[in-house]
Design a protein around this nucleic acid. Structure first.
Length: 461
RNA sequence: GGUGCGGUGGCCAAGUGGUAAGGCGGCAGUCUGCAAAACUGCUAUUCGCGGGUUCGAUUCCCGCCCGCACCUCCA
């Protein structure tokens, strides 16, 4: 398949190095609920994994950042995990556990397939210390009053992911806050010392004293532990390109002397009219909020499927409404198809499958693939063949297209049932004025009425 | 200030050196007492603006305008 590689800024042919694809995806920091912008990235990664699985075995590792990191690299930063704990009157450990559970609830509801390995940062402190030690032995580190730092000037290829001009811009960068003890603006902490004046909830012994790992070291340590020194694909959000992933490369390649990642694949942001969605800014939308407003998590998944993963997607409730309407229509079409299939033999038309392959394998052109699903209804193939194709397509799209929605007919309120009976009588007497009045009354209660060959059908609006 | 991405019909959004997928919405028809649903058909002579290359550009090049993101924790 073809994938856009941030490293080369080109679409490239992808094939795994070994017998299975090794894929690492940056996971959530569990100090608050994930918002739908975060989740867009996991949906994109899920689509990538599902597409890869059409051809390969995939070992998918995702980390859980349950260690608090500083909100900035400067001394003044606060720890997000401990902030969350203070906010909710719980321990940092409880906070991490709570939001990890909440994260996977959302993750599952969006039909994202669980990674092969889920690795918590707090369970890999030993590996991180070992990696920092290796870097220290190789002379890449130096000590300041608050921690052990990585000297980026010792790693000549530091700029490969982001471009040299960017790093140079950073040097003159007007907005970068300088830490006096840092040798270069791009240097970053590998290990931070606990403050002398108070005890942190999360801290560990290390060869350099009690403290906690820097933000970037966990991904390098865990990716290499589970996937080896060279990983096929590493994903994450575009915001990670310039700092986090650049630093991961520096740490990992300095330690092993081998290429760290072959394909860097980054997902673009979901944006709001007012700008991007931000956890730290406070206001953000969660899946729970969407559900509260009457949307299904899969309505949101459908919305994400409409746009390419490398383009920004603007979120509005209007577009979510469109997505919901589209998904509903699509599922209804599939339901009709299912009725028609009967005992006809199944077998997806090879032509449709091939087109679908071509779309998803072209750097994940999911919206094109989705269009093919709509188009299959217009083809002359048998219902069974169409349905088989849709089933195949849904193994990548993950929209539960063949799953029946739970019908609400059984739980009609008594008033509605009564009004329906009255309306039926009025219609039989051809008193349409009266029957329309009953329909209005039913509508006022929040229900719609359809007249079908099997009689009246009422459903919640 | 530096870096990167993008501007396609009413809306969302694919795409390509040879004349614009798909969805939503809208309109019309069939059906219906009327609706709804369903089905059928129609719905951008045109791809931010101005140049250039070319037989031909929305697609390649240059300039401009506009939007967004990153450079600070961030998916």
């Amino acid at each position: 398949m073809k994938l856009y590689n941030t490293l080369t800024r080109r679409k490239e042919d992808f094939a795994p190095l070994g017998s299975e694809v090794t894929l690492y995806a940056c996971g959530p920091t569990v100090y608050n609920y994930a918002h739908i912008g975060n989740l867009r990235t996991y949906i994109f990664e899920d689509l990538l994994v599902r597409t890869l699985r059409l051809k390969y075995k995939v070992k998918h590792v995702m980390n859980i950042t349950d260690v608090g990191h500083l909100t900035s690299d400067a001394d003044a930063g606060e720890d997000k995990m401990e902030l969350g704990a203070a906010r909710e009157g719980k321990s940092a450990w409880d906070i991490a556990k709570f939001y990890e559970t909440a994260f996977f609830k959302d993750f599952d509801s969006l039909n994202c397939t669980r990674p092969t390995v889920i690795s918590r940062a707090t369970e890999h402190i030993k590996e991180m210390i070992a990696l920092v030690k290796t870097l220290e032995e190789k002379g890449y580190t130096y000590k300041t009053s608050d921690g052990i730092y990585y000297d980026t000037s010792k790693f000549p290829a530091y700029h490969t992911l982001v471009g040299k001009s960017h790093i140079e811009g950073l040097k003159s960068g007007a907005r970068v806050e300088f830490n006096d003890e840092k040798k270069n603006p791009s240097d970053f902490a590998l290990w931070k010392f606990s403050p002398a004046d108070h005890k942190r909830q999360m801290e560990w012994d290390s060869p350099w004293g009690v403290g906690f790992p820097g933000w970037h070291i966990e991904c390098s340590a865990m990716a290499m532990k589970y996937l080896g020194p060279t990983v096929d694909i590493h994903c994450g959000g575009v915001d990670h390109v310039a700092v986090h992933h650049t630093n991961e490369i520096a740490q990992s390649e300095a330690a092993t002397g081998k290429p760290y990642v072959r394909y860097w694949v980054h997902g673009e942001f979901l944006v709001l009219h007012s700008g991007k969605m931000s956890k730290s800014a406070g206001t953000f939308l969660t899946v729970g909020e969407l559900v509260k407003q009457g949307y299904s998590p899969l309505d949101y998944r459908y919305l994400c499927l409409g746009a390419h993963y490398r383009t920004q997607l603007e979120f509005t409730f209007e577009s979510l409404d469109f997505a919901r309407a589209s998904l509903k229509n699509l599922k209804e079409k599939v339901a009709v198809l299912k009725k028609d299939v009967g005992n006809l033999p199944l077998g997806a038309c090879p032509e449709c499958k091939e087109k679908f392959f071509d779309a998803v394998e072209d750097d994940l052109n999911i919206s094109k693939a989705l269009a093919l699903v709509w188009e299959v209804f217009k083809t002359p193939f048998s219902a069974g063949s169409k349905l088989a194709f849709i089933q195949f397509a849904d193994s990548v799209l993950g929209l539960d297209l063949l799953k029946e929605d739970i019908k609400e007919e059984a739980v009609l309120p008594v008033e509605v049932t009564l009004l329906l009976k009255h309306r039926e009588i009025a219609r039989r007497n051809k008193d349409f004025k009266l029957s329309d009045e009953y329909r209005d009354k039913i509508a006022a209660l929040g229900y719609t009425v359809k007249d079908t060959p099997d009689g009246q059908k009422a459903a919640k609006k």
